[in-house]
Simulated scan of single mutants.
Amino acid sequence: MDTRDNIIKQLRGVAFGKLTSETSADEFFQNETLRPILKLQNDLLLLVFQNYITKSKTDFNNYSAEKKLNFIENAIQKDIKFRNSLKGMVIGLFTLEEYNRYIVNSSSLNKRMMNLIIERLKSQVQLLVHL
């Protein structure tokens, strides 16, 4: 029977980016763990953000492109409850070993995680249609 960690790694697929001997521990974690999880969770992240737009009762569809990008960034950086929800969506797909590595340097890794999510949403802003 497969263990939870094996199942998670199979779901996520391969790492992103080049991993060399000069790769920092945080960069290694980002490419080995965070990027594959965010790719796997992409559709859910989009749906969660669409729901956030709806609940915020903003006129997102009529925002300029620049204002949409600012809205994404501000939502993730300033709404702590929403930020923690996004973090949970990612952390829930860590293996036990990855979680142990994460808690050693969670502050730096959280910053990387949120920046990756912000950039992922910004690059797909055209898909964020407020219904």
Rank of each mutant, 00 (worst) to 15 (best):
M1W: 12
M1A: 14
T3W: 08
R4Y: 13
R4W: 08
N6T: 13
N6L: 13
N6F: 11
I7A: 14
Q10K: 15
Q10M: 05
L11Q: 10
R12K: 13
R12G: 05
R12A: 14
G13A: 11
A15I: 03
F16R: 12
G17C: 09
G17S: 15
K18D: 14
L19Q: 15
T20V: 03
E22A: 08
A25M: 07
A25T: 13
D26T: 12
E27V: 06
E27T: 11
F28H: 10
F29W: 06
Q30N: 06
N31R: 15
N31W: 01
R35H: 08
P36H: 04
I37Q: 03
L38I: 15
K39H: 15
L40K: 11
N42E: 14
L44A: 14
V48A: 11
Q50V: 07
Q50P: 07
N51R: 10
N51A: 10
Y52M: 09
D59Q: 08
D59Y: 10
F60S: 03
N61P: 12
N61F: 09
N61W: 09
N62H: 15
S64N: 08
A65W: 13
A65N: 14
A65I: 08
E66V: 07
E66Q: 09
K67P: 03
K67M: 13
K68A: 05
L69F: 11
N70Y: 12
N70C: 04
F71I: 05
N74F: 10
N74V: 10
A75F: 01
A75K: 01
I76D: 00
Q77I: 14
I80H: 11
K81H: 12
F82V: 03
F82N: 01
S85F: 15
L86K: 00
K87V: 00
G88I: 00
G88L: 03
M89Y: 05
M89C: 06
M89E: 03
V90I: 09
I91F: 05
L93Y: 07
L93D: 00
L93E: 00
E97Y: 11
E98A: 01
E98W: 02
N100R: 01
Y102D: 00
Y102G: 01
N105C: 05
N105H: 09
S107T: 02
S108T: 11
S108N: 10
S108F: 04
L109V: 04
N110V: 07
K111W: 00
R112S: 13
M113P: 09
N115T: 04
I117D: 01
I118D: 02
R120V: 02
L121C: 06
K122T: 03
Q124G: 02
Q124H: 09
V125W: 03
L128E: 06
H130V: 04
L131Y: 15
L131F: 09
